[in-house]
Write a protein that binds this DNA or RNA. Structure first.
Lengths: 158, 158
DNA sequence: TCCATATTGTTGATATGTCAACAATACTCA
DNA sequence: TGAGTATTGTTGACATATCAACAATATGGA
């Protein structure tokens, strides 16, 4: 009878990372439900509130870490609700430029203050300084992960 | 002309958290693709490798932070591939007990060592001690998030 | 110029996820 | 015991996600 092997601190931390992100995502679904938005829809709209005149669908897919083809339906539904519009991209007839409509701007003006307050609350009990350190470590983890993904072909080669 | 407002450290850290989790998830899809598994399928199988005689579908849904109804299809597909089996739950005729088959055990014996190594590599450049601290902070964030979700009805009340 | 190559958005197939509603079964306690 | 309530798994409708394939269009050299 041997004791079960104790998982490594890094493995445990990775599981906690994914678990926490899942918890936040699930909770945000309820949160954004107040405005009949899904988290994915909110994230897309949030990008469009940045100064500038919108983004193409490919740009959106890169920012949202999602596949091009996923943006089509997302924009379709937001457009049907009148929150975004597709404008012709001058100089590239393949592309659309997706922008917030006036209604989209009004909705985001309403949602964003609540969102920022909620973002602060999830770090309650953790000093801003420490949250920043955690963020920095997570940035490194993301970089490591991308590097590993690029090397997958030679994964496990010593 | 005022400068754009600088986002708070906690807001930035929250975005980084979600972004990193997304990056890991996307990378893991490629990783598990070597064994024709999706991340969701791997996570389910991984739970079943724990000692004990399997889990019911409701237990699986709680561990995986996902809806009951999602487990049905997940188990259906894994069962069709012969990696898991549904056994009758003694004492509760509503429930199934999902267990790994011999083939499921063989597959996980093959995958897990690669998975553990990859989990370590993701934290490269970050001392184990520091990874554990990050994990601890993330655990607190998850707790705060759950608390906030429970209070959503009174959200934004001072 | 013209050809090879890349990029953009869409489609259809499919997996993963939610939710509401349902039937079957289990549980509680007056 | 029995009535009301809760839990379990499934289904169907739908949103979100991937991927491969496609047509249209851009782009970069020979």
């Amino acid at each position: 009878m041997s004791a079960p092997p104790k998982p490594s601190p890094r493995y445990t931390a990775l599981l906690q990372l994914l678990r926490t992100a899942d918890t936040i995502w699930n909770s945000s679904r309820v949160f954004f439900g107040r405005w009949e938005l899904s988290p994915a829809q909110f994230n897309l709209l949030n990008l469009l509130t940045d100064p500038g005149d919108g983004l193409t669908q490919s740009e959106l897919s890169r920012e949202l870490l999602t596949h091009r083809s996923n943006i089509t339906g997302l924009v379709d539904r937001l457009e049907a609700r009148g929150l975004v519009a597709r404008r012709e991209e001058t100089g590239d007839r393949r592309a659309w430029r997706v922008v917030l409509t006036a209604a989209g701007h009004r909705l985001m003006d309403e949602v964003l203050p609540h969102y920022f307050r909620a973002a602060e609350r999830v770090w309650e009990g953790i000093p801003a300084r420490r949250a920043a350190e955690v963020g920095e470590a997570l940035r490194q983890v993301a970089i490591n992960t991308e590097r590993a993904a690029g090397q997958l072909a030679v994964e496990d080669r010593p």
